[in-house]
Amino acid sequence: MAGIITHTTGVSGQHAQQRSRVDRDPVWVRWTLSFLAIGFAILFLVLPLVVVGVYALSEGLRVFLSALTDPDARSAIRLTLITAAIVVPANTLFGLVAAWAIARFRFRGRSLLITLIDLPFAISPVIAGLMLVLVFGLRGWFGSTLSDWGVQVIFSTPGIVLATLFITFPFVARELIPLLESQGSDQEESALTLGASGWQMFFRITLPNIRWGLLYGMILCNARAMGEFGAVSIVSGHIRGLTNTLPLHVEVLYNDYQLAAAFACASLLALLALFTLFLKIAVEWKLSRDARLAARDAIIETGLLPVRGDRSPRSTSPSTPTT
C-alpha cells in the first residue's frame, strides 16, 4: 500500500508563489489551517519522538547505557542485524529481478503479478506470522518433516527471517518498477546493438540509471525489517537472549516494568527511523535533480532550447561498453 505514495517534493514551492491574488485563501483561514496542521503534526509526530528520547535518559546516562549493553539487549541487537543482513539483500535481488521482468516485458498475467507482489502491504503482519506457523509450525504442513531433519523454523531464527522476508517483500520492487518504466529501454537497446553482453548492459546502463531508486527501496526495506513487530512476535516465541529482536526486547522490558530500559532500546530504533528519514530526503533530492536534468536534456535534444553545447547533456553519452 505504501507503494502508492509518490515523491512529491520540489514542485509545491514554485506553485504557491505563483498564485494570483484571487485564489489565495484569506489571511485568517491561512493562519487557522497552518495552526491546526502544525499543532496536529506536533501532537502526533513530534511529541511521541521527543517522549522516547526524554524517558530513555530519565534515569541517567548510566541506566541508558547499561540497558543497551545488557547481554539480552546485545543479543537482540545482533539478531535484528542478522535478520536485516539476510532480508535486505534477498529482497533487493528479488526486487531487481522482478522489476526487470515486469517493467521491460509485456506478458499475460502481468497486472496480476503486480497485485500479488503488493499483497504483503495489504495483509496484517499478524496474519503473515500466522501463515508461517501454519506452514512451518509443529502441526503445520512441513513442520514435523523439518523437525525430523532437526530443522526448527518457528520459535527460531529462520522463522523470524521468513516473517521479515514476507513483510518487506514489495519495497524494492515497488520502487523500481515505475522508475524502470519511466526511463524506457532505449539506452539498453543501443548498448546491446553496440555489442554489449547482457551483464555489461545491466551493470553499465541499467544499474547506474536506477541506483537512487534502488537505494531508496533498500532503505525503506531495511527500516521495516529492523522494526517489524507483529509478524515476528508471532513466530519468535520470545525466548530471551535467543529469539528476541530489538522491538520484541522493548516489549519484554516494558512488560517487566523496566520502563527506562524499554525506552532506551526504543530510542535506538527511533534513531534508526530518523536516519532513514534523513537518507530518504537525500535520495529524493537526488531523484528529483536527476529528473530535472533528464527533462532539461530532453528539451535540449529536441532543440526547443537554444543552449546547445552549453553544457554536455548527459543522456547523449551513455557509457557504452567497448568490446
Binding site: P48, L49, V51, V52, L220, A223, M226, G227, E228, F229, G230, P247, L248, V250, E251, Y254, A262, F263, A266, L269, A270, L272, A273, L274, T276, L277, K280
Partner: peptide, 10 residues
C-alpha cells in the same frame, strides 16, 4: 519509518 513498537511505547 518508525517501528510500530516504538510508536506504541511512545
Amino acid at each position: 519509518a518508525l517501528p510500530t513498537a516504538v510508536s506504541g511505547i511512545a
